[in-house]
Amino acid sequence: MLDDRARMEAAKKEKVEQILAEFQLQEEDLKKVMRRMQKEMDRGLRLETHEEASVKMLPTYVRSTPEGSEVGDFLSLDLGGTNFRVMLVKVGEGEEGQWSVKTKHQMYSIPEDAMTGTAEMLFDYISECISDFLDKHQMKHKKLPLGFTFSFPVRHEDIDKGILLNWTKGFKASGAEGNNVVGLLRDAIKRRGDFEMDVVAMVNDTVATMISCYYEDHQCEVGMIVGTGCNACYMEEMQNVELVEGDEGRMCVNTEWGAFGDSGELDEFLLEYDRLVDESSANPGQQLYEKLIGGKYMGELVRLVLLRLVDENLLFHGEASEQLRTRGAFETRFVSQVESDTGDRKQIYNILSTLGLRPSTTDCDIVRRACESVSTRAAHMCSAGLAGVINRMRESRSEDVMRITVGVDGSVYKLHPSFKERFHASVRRLTPSCEITFIESEEGSGRGAALVSAVACKKACMLGQ
């Protein structure tokens, strides 16, 4: 009897593995994704193909990295998701002549009506938060230079001027797309009239992360975010950046690689679950690469896999709870928690219980395998993109072996128990001629924006502006 049951459990697990095998990517698959990513990057950089390229390769006008001589107080704003952060950054000489960066910050959550109302409502709310922060720190009387981390696709015309191309991540505030974001912020500050600010720089969160990590390690020339969304930036040779005049030196390019796949480059790798996630998203047909990796989508992918296993009578005796059938019910943090389970399955059992399920031991094991399959594919897909960037940098610099540091931020990278190990191992397999160091950014977005502002202020002083 026991043997029969054991055989049935083994057969069930084997069927589960057959279904989950769809998520496995072979090294040849990853090399294919990497080569296609490089081709799209090239198209994004070139003037004649930029418009139709899915990977936009947006110039950021960040050319210099901090040298350690900029000092002063800077205000930093960070808008990239449902939370908005205001930070005071003091850049100065530390002990023994070292450079020191001290920060104080406060988080504000953005109400739904500000995210989806008008641009005026959104930026009025942001300036209200700045006003509140300055009151708390008794700094209303000071006109501070301000660095703005704005983590949406922007076409820069200068370091302090950028046109919002399109909202992502659930934002829909009308009247912002096609307009200068810094102008919208300046107008809102003017409307309030109770404080003055000098907006000197606007950067993407990947750029802010790279600059913040450069402060720790001067070989950091790539910034990457794996959180709600997924994106990367890197220092490109100016001669390859056709959208900006000049051939000397390097400029940081914001790849906006989340949109890779929007022209069909990933079609052969998309599964039924991916198509369902895409169809029910706020932007169907867009940001397809990001939807395979980002935390906004990972939990939902797992939920759809679990429903398939229920329908195949391989999980929960073929019956799903009402909660499990509800879109968004299986949160991405559950994926991390399930994979963090120590082996007694308590954590998995508790999560499934909150979803109205009474799982068996085998159910718990199957749910864990589903989570591992989805998150491992995410790590491997992400590795193909980064390997594409790094191999490109090595080739354009004609280096036999390139040493490089990548600064990384984002909740999936930082909080998932195995993502970074799987990701690092896969990147290294795909970049055999590179020695890569990964560092995690601390308060990256805010500190990085302030350091970019410090560079901009120093330049302005040198130019006598």
Rank of each mutant, 00 (worst) to 15 (best):
L2G: 09
L2R: 04
D3H: 04
D4G: 12
A6E: 14
M8F: 11
K12H: 11
K12D: 15
K12P: 06
K12T: 11
K13H: 09
E14C: 14
V16A: 05
V16G: 04
V16Q: 03
I19K: 02
E22Q: 02
E22V: 10
Q26S: 11
E27Y: 07
D29G: 03
L30V: 12
V33W: 03
V33G: 01
V33R: 00
R36T: 03
Q38I: 12
Q38T: 01
M41F: 14
M41D: 02
R43G: 04
R43E: 11
G44F: 00
G44N: 02
L47C: 13
E48S: 13
H50P: 02
S54V: 14
S54E: 09
V55T: 06
L58F: 11
P59T: 06
P59G: 01
V62Q: 01
R63E: 14
T65R: 11
P66S: 11
P66E: 06
E67R: 07
E70K: 15
G72T: 04
F74R: 01
S76K: 06
L77K: 01
D78W: 12
L79T: 04
G80L: 13
G81D: 10
T82D: 11
T82F: 15
N83A: 09
N83Q: 08
R85D: 15
R85Q: 14
M87H: 05
V89D: 02
V89P: 01
V91P: 03
V91G: 08
W99L: 08
W99C: 06
V101W: 08
Q106M: 10
Q106Y: 05
M107F: 13
Y108H: 03
Y108W: 13
S109Q: 12
M115C: 13
T116A: 15
G117Y: 09
G117F: 10
A119W: 05
A119R: 10
A119K: 11
M121A: 14
Y125N: 04
I126V: 06
C129L: 02
I130F: 03
I130W: 04
D132Y: 03
D135W: 03
H137F: 06
Q138W: 04
M139S: 06
K140W: 07
G147E: 05
G147P: 03
F148M: 06
F148T: 06
T149P: 04
R155K: 11
H156V: 10
D158M: 05
D160P: 03
L164F: 12
L165Y: 11
W167G: 15
T168L: 10
T168D: 15
G170E: 14
G170N: 13
K172A: 14
K172D: 06
G175E: 11
G175H: 09
A176R: 06
E177D: 14
G178Y: 10
V181F: 11
V182P: 08
G183H: 13
L184W: 13
L184E: 09
L184Y: 12
L184C: 13
L184D: 10
K190P: 05
K190H: 08
R191S: 02
R192D: 02
G193N: 03
F195H: 15
F195E: 11
E196A: 08
D198W: 03
V200E: 06
M202E: 08
V203T: 12
T206L: 03
T206P: 11
M210K: 06
I211E: 03
S212T: 03
Y214M: 11
Y215E: 05
E221G: 09
V226L: 09
G227W: 02
C230I: 07
M235P: 01
Q239I: 15
Q239E: 09
N240V: 07
L243T: 06
D247A: 06
E248A: 09
M251R: 01
C252L: 02
N254C: 07
N254R: 11
T255N: 04
E256P: 01
W257L: 07
G258F: 03
G258S: 02
G261L: 03
G261W: 01
D262K: 09
G264S: 07
D274T: 03
L276Q: 06
V277R: 03
E279G: 06
E279H: 13
E279C: 15
S281W: 01
N283M: 10
P284V: 13
Q286I: 14
Q287R: 10
Q287D: 05
L288Q: 09
G294E: 05
G295M: 02
L304I: 06
L307Y: 01
L309M: 13
L309Q: 02
L314P: 00
L315Y: 01
F316G: 08
F316I: 02
F316R: 00
F316S: 06
G318Y: 05
G318H: 06
E319T: 09
E322C: 10
T326R: 11
E331R: 14
R333L: 07
F334Q: 08
F334A: 10
Q337K: 15
V338H: 01
E339D: 08
E339H: 01
T342K: 12
T342A: 09
G343I: 04
Q347V: 13
I348D: 01
Y349G: 10
I351W: 02
I351E: 09
L352R: 01
S353R: 03
T354H: 05
T354I: 08
L355C: 04
G356N: 08
R358Y: 12
P359S: 03
T361Q: 12
T361K: 06
I366A: 11
V367N: 00
R368S: 11
E372S: 06
E372F: 13
S375P: 01
T376N: 08
R377N: 00
R377M: 00
A379N: 03
S383C: 03
L386W: 02
A387C: 12
G388K: 00
M393N: 02
R394L: 04
R397T: 08
S398L: 07
S398R: 04
D400I: 10
R403W: 02
R403Q: 15
G407Q: 02
G407F: 03
G410C: 02
S411Q: 11
K414D: 02
K414Q: 04
H416I: 06
P417R: 07
S418W: 14
E421L: 09
E421T: 07
R422W: 09
F423H: 08
R428T: 13
L430F: 06
P432W: 08
E435A: 09
E435Q: 09
E435N: 09
I436Y: 02
I439F: 07
E440K: 06
E440W: 04
E440F: 05
S441K: 08
E442F: 10
E443M: 11
R447W: 12
R447S: 13
A449W: 13
A450S: 10
A450L: 08
L451S: 08
L451Y: 07
S453D: 11
A456P: 04
A456W: 07
L463G: 13
G464T: 03
G464A: 07
Q465S: 14
